[in-house]
Design a protein around this nucleic acid. Sequence first.
DNA 1: ACAAAAGTGTTGTGAATACACCCATGC
DNA 2: GCATGGGTGTATTCACAACACTTTTGT
Lengths: 255, 255
Amino acid sequence: MEGYDKYAFEPFAVTVDLAVFTVRAGVLQALLIERGQEPFAGHWALPGGFVLPDESAGTAARRELAEETGLADVSGLHLEQLRTYSEPDRDPRMRVVSVAYTALLPDPPEPRGGGDAASARWLPYDGLGPLAFDHDRILADAHERVGAKLEYTCLATAFCPPEFTLGELQQVYETVWGTALDRPNFRRKVLATPGFVEQIPGAARLTGGRGKPAALYRAGDATALHPPLMRPASAPSPASAPQASPSPSSEGRSS
Amino acid sequence: MEGYDKYAFEPFAVTVDLAVFTVRAGVLQALLIERGQEPFAGHWALPGGFVLPDESAGTAARRELAEETGLADVSGLHLEQLRTYSEPDRDPRMRVVSVAYTALLPDPPEPRGGGDAASARWLPYDGLGPLAFDHDRILADAHERVGAKLEYTCLATAFCPPEFTLGELQQVYETVWGTALDRPNFRRKVLATPGFVEQIPGAARLTGGRGKPAALYRAGDATALHPPLMRPASAPSPASAPQASPSPSSEGRSS
DNA sequence: ACAAAAGTGTTGTGAATACACCCATGC
DNA sequence: GCATGGGTGTATTCACAACACTTTTGT
């Protein structure tokens, strides 16, 4: 490995895989595509695709997100690099190194993207069967990361439409964490954090059809939560985040 | 991008870059190598190298770490994936996608690795001149990440030798964060977290040559800090961690 | 009237801060 | 003795959890 002979090695393919989440009706859902061909024909897989020669992985991820969701404007969506999966045997066909990204969207349209996706669908995160490649692990890593970031960032608003109620924001937390939160305390905490949300003066909206109309809020410009909004100590908590060595990994091609 | 023609695209090189930190005498230091050839001849760069065809990026990172530090046993060291840098123009020679790793070590030997490193040295993190490629950014990202993880994990012990005093542990925090901490409170916080450290019964050691001998501790088996040990609100705090799009990136070849 | 959902108030407990103070050692 | 660093105690402040209660809507 001295010089820079481009063809010194078997080439590596570099791809992106997308773990796209949304919260709909109190259920955490992930965007998945059904594979039409081997390997893993018939299995669900994460959307993704090759990084093109002149784009960065981040650019490729946003391009794939647009193709896969069919959304016209994907520029405002939250998209964040998760980690890279590079086990040599991730993909039986060839050596594929995949940079995984996590995306969060509000009120998703049914996909059927304009892109090449065979059949893209939103499926509930809980109770997913085994996915193709190591996509189970990627999706689980993404879920863990999103759950953790809700604690110390204002990320939750990325799941919400431009105008939302505090109840809806709370439901994001409860859905991602899988725990119930105390409404008065949640409310105080959110409002006490400057820049997390800003109230829209006159606006209000009914949420469940019944009950008092709720005030509407917009996402603020803050990005961090100080102090954090910690989830109640319940689960044994994975806690030791992504390690270096033991990282299975795989990738999915959508086209 | 339909099939799987291995040579459909200009090949991507996949490399690892290492941001290796240590704390010596209250100074945060990074392991860097001096580049002997263009591009960036004479500049300092992160150690790193190609991922070989049959190894994962994590395996490659640990191999490079051993080569670069010259340490016989590198298996116990903390090594963790940071993120991947993939801007198309990172390296002027060809398309290089680099998976960056962060490593932490205690009381480092002077490098001069058995490896191929031209001239590897520990340099103080503060006041580093511009590094080769986008290694400035990688190193800054790594520093930010380590600082953040000290808050909510037991990572600090990775900077310490097998037996250490609480004063030394505190110095790790102070050095990485660049802030002073209250000793009594730090002590209570650490001891109140079960599994963070465990005292070695009879042992004690002088630290500064003067003063009362300090009790010795070993790293415990805990991995998370609940509740976290937050750094005093001071710096504007980058807070919004790695985003997707704006990620310059580069790589360094050591051989 | 009742249910459902938003919103407010209060109170007790625990944690973090900011100190003051004592102990052991080298010089 | 004094400087240096380890170790203990304590009071104030702050944040949070828990829960009772009021308000506004639809049925």
